[in-house]
C-alpha cells in the first residue's frame, strides 16, 4: 500500500532522506520514529508528493506518487506536521470546507460525512467553536477529522499527538486505533509507548537512513545480545537454582534478591520457557511468575539513534 524505493531527498548538498526502502502492506499501522531532524517529515512530504524526490520512487495504493499525485491523494488522508488549520472558520465549517475541496459536492452526503467524523473524533461538544479557540487536543482531533473526511484508505499522520497531555495522548491514540480497521496508517511520533501500544511495526530512521524495521518484539530480539528469563518458582531456593542451571542452553543464573526470583541467561534467540515449565511440573514447584525480558522501545531507539 505504501512503498518507498530508494527514496532520496537532498536540500543543497545535504542528503536528508537517503535511499530509503520500505513496503507497508494494507491494514498495517506503522510507527515512524527518529530523532529530531532525522527526515521523518521530509519522507512524508515525499510520499504525499508535496516535495519532489531527487531519486527513487514511491507508490501508494499501487499508484506512482510522482506521476499520478492527484489519484494518489484521493486515496490519502494527510495530517501535516504542526496540524495547520484555518483558524477563522467554525469547526463544522472547517470540515465542510475540507469536504468541498475534496470533491464532496453533494450537500447531503457531505453533511453526513461531517456528522460521521464529528462523532468518531469526539468533536460534538465543540460544535460552534471557532478553530482558533479550540484547545490543543481538540485541534488535533479536528485535524484528524479533516484528514479522514473522505474516508481514505491510507493515512499519513505527522506527529498527531505532539504537545498533548497524557490523557489526550491516550484519547487520540484510541481514536487512531479505531480508525485502523480498514486503513493503512503511517504515523510519526516521539511518544514511544504510543508506538508499542498501537503499531504493528516500527520503522526507525536516523540521519535519513532506515536503521531498524520490524515489530517491536522483533527489534528487541535482534538487538539483545543475550536472552534473559525471569523465573519465580515456589520451592527450595537452592534446588531451584541448581535445576535451572542444569537447563540445556542456560549460561548463567542470577538471583534477583528484590523479587526473590532467578534470572536465567541464555544465548540471544533461545527460548527456555518450555524447559522451565517441564522442570517445574516435574519437581512440583508451582510457577509464580515467568517473564521474558525484552528491550524496551526506548532502549532500542537510543541504541540505534545516538550519534557518536
Amino acid at each position: 500500500m505504501i512503498l518507498a524505493k530508494n527514496l532520496t531527498k537532498r536540500f543543497g548538498d545535504r542528503t536528508v532522506v537517503d535511499h530509503i526502502n520500505f513496503d507497508i502492506p494494507q491494514g498495517q499501522v506503522v510507527g515512524f520514529l527518529g530523532p529530531n531532524g532525522a527526515g521523518k517529515t521530509t519522507t512524508m512530504r515525499l510520499l504525499t508528493a508535496y516535495l519532489p524526490a531527487d531519486e527513487g520512487q514511491a507508490e501508494l495504493a499501487g499508484l506512482n506518487v510522482f506521476n499520478q499525485p492527484l489519484a494518489v491523494r484521493r486515496r490519502l488522508g494527510y495530517l501535516p506536521e504542526d496540524n495547520p488549520l484555518w483558524e477563522d472558520l467554525e469547526l463544522t465549517e472547517a470540515l465542510h470546507f475540507a469536504g468541498r475541496l475534496r470533491g464532496l459536492t453533494d450537500d447531503a452526503s457531505r453533511a453526513a460525512r461531517v456528522r460521521a467524523v464529528v462523532k468518531s473524533c469526539g468533536l460534538r461538544r465543540e460544535i460552534g467553536t471557532k478553530v482558533g479557540e479550540l484547545s490543543k487536543g481538540f485541534r488535533q482531533r479536528l485535524g484528524l477529522a479533516a484528514a479522514i473526511i473522505h474516508d481514505p484508505e491510507i493515512l499519513i499522520l505527522d506527529e498527531p499527538t505532539s504537545g498533548l497531555d497524557p490523557n489526550q495522548v491516550l484519547e487520540v491514540r484510541d481514536l487512531i486505533y479505531e480508525l485502523r480497521t480498514h486503513k493503512t496508517v503511517l504515523i510519526s511520533t516521539h511518544i514511544l509507548p504510543e508506538v508499542t501500544a498501537t503499531c504493528d511495526r516500527v520503522i526507525i530512521i536516523n540521519a535519513g537512513k532506515i536503521v531498524a524495521d520490524g515489530t517491536p518484539a522483533d527489534l528487541a530480539g535482534d538487538m539483545a545480545d543475550k536472552n534473559r528469563l525471569h523465573v519465580e518458582l515456589k520451592g527450595p531456593k537452592d534446588d531451584i537454582r541448581r535445576a535451572l542451571a542444569g537447563l540445556p542452553g542456560a549460561s548463567q543464573i542470577v538471583a534477583d534478591e528484590i523479587e526473590g526470583s532467578f534470572i536465567v541467561e541464555s544465548a540471544a534467540g533461545a527460548d527456555l520457557r518450555e524447559g522451565v515449565f517441564r522442570l517445574a511440573a516435574h519437581n512440583d514447584w508451582p510457577i509464580l511468575s515467568l517473564r521474558q525480558e525484552r528491550l524496551s522501545l526506548e532502549e532500542i531507539f537510543r541504541a540505534l539513534t545516538q550519534n557518536p
Binding site: 491523494r73 490519502l76 501535516p80 495547520p84
Partner: peptide
C-alpha cells in the same frame, strides 16, 4: 495550511 491545500487532489 498551504501544505494541506497542496496535498489535496
Amino acid at each position: 495550511t498551504f501544505e494541506t491545500l497542496a496535498t489535496l487532489p
